[in-house]
């Protein structure tokens, strides 16, 4: 394949011109230089020979020129087609990428709307449940007051009150998910916050689980330290459960450049700088069905009584409150990675 710019477009004309010139020279040589002696065999055709040579030469030159031009035109066409093919492929892959990212955004938005709807529903349930609990507590307290403090009835009613306390705690967790609490936001150092959360968590984690923290220095965000602690605690506790008490958790904090492809996953595009917090475990991983429901409140794969199913929905809600994004990558038998993108800011 010859690129059109490098093709010698003058070549066919040179061939035709050169051929015609040679033919004329031949004609002139045969006609004027008495070479009959060498052409005795062609004697009967002698008078036509020079013209025949001229015609033959001209025809051959034109034919050669035409063939060369056809080859050149064909090369040009092939080059053009190849170029079009490359452009088309590029356009197709760009469209495919755009379509994929649109689909991901749609799923994320749908997930957000779904969580919002569940939040509203949970808020309503919490209101009714608080009324129910209040009635139970009120009646039990009144009945208990009439009983002898050493009686079994008095003690049993005390247990009822204890149970209602647990119900109350559950409701406050549901409300924490459903309502937008007004948390104080300030400039915080992400690495210091992670280290503080790890120091809180480490005493509760089995010695057979190792935690590695790899960090890029100088990452600051505008956020609430307690909420970021909660994010880490909830994800790490899930990781420990998924590893059944043995394995490695790797936490990585990194700066992201503004053109990082990961930023295409943001549901709200923002031109500012982002940082990435990755938390990976070597646990049993999740299947697709679990991954799709993982942020739904009350969805849990843990045994009854072991998990409220609110941990990751609270994580999701906190990250959204921090104008960030949380991405999940998991494979059955190959562990799980949560990638959190958060807007970065200048340090205090």
């Amino acid at each position: 394949m010859i690129p059109p710019a490098k093709q010698k477009s003058w070549l066919p004309y040179l061939v035709v011109g050169g051929g015609i010139l040679i033919s004329f020279l031949l004609w002139h040589f045969i006609l004027w230089h008495h070479v009959e002696a060498y052409l005795d065999l062609l004697l009967p055709y002698k008078s036509y020979l020079s013209w025949l040579a001229l015609l033959l030469g001209i025809s051959l030159s034109i034919l050669a020129g035409t063939i060369i031009r056809i080859i050149q035109l064909d090369d040009q066409r092939t080059a053009l087609l190849n170029e079009m093919q490359i452009t088309l492929k590029k356009e197709m892959s760009e469209r495919l990428r755009a379509e994929e990212s649109k689909q991901k955004l749609e799923i994320a938005l749908l997930q957000g709307q779904k969580l919002q709807a569940i939040g509203t529903l949970a808020g309503g349930i919490a209101h009714d449940f608080n009324n129910i609990l209040y009635a139970i507590i009120g009646y039990v307290e009144m009945t208990r007051e009439e009983e002898d403090k050493n009686s079994i009835k008095y003690n049993n009613l005390g247990k009822v009150l204890e149970a209602t306390k647990r119900g109350q705690e559950l409701i406050s967790r549901i409300l924490a998910f459903s309502r937008k609490q007004h948390h104080e936001f300030e400039v915080i150092d992400l690495n210091n916050t992670i280290e503080a959360a790890l120091s809180l968590l480490k005493p509760t984690i089995p010695a057979s689980v190792s935690i590695q923290f790899e960090k890029n220095h100088g990452i600051s965000i505008v956020g609430n330290q307690t909420q970021i602690h909660q994010v880490l605690v909830n994800i790490i506790n899930n990781a420990v459960d998924a590893m059944e008490g043995e394995g490695t958790i790797i936490i990585r904090s990194t700066h992201l450049t503004t053109d990082d492809p990961l930023l295409k996953q943001l549901t709200q595009s923002s031109p500012q700088k982002y940082c990435k917090l990755e938390i990976s475990d070597t646990g049993h991983g999740m299947d697709q069905a679990t991954m799709e429901r993982v942020y739904e409140p009350f969805f849990t794969t843990k045994e009854v009584g072991k998990g409220s199913g609110l941990g990751l929905s609270i994580v999701h809600s906190i990250i959204k409150e921090h104008r960030g994004e949380i991405l999940l990558n998991s494979q059955l038998g190959h562990g799980t990675t949560f990638t959190i993108l958060l807007p970065e800011c200048s340090p205090k």
Partner: peptide, 11 residues
Amino acid sequence: ISGGGRLDPTG
């Protein structure tokens, strides 16, 4: 007195 709802009870 309130048990919450669409807003939080404290709201």
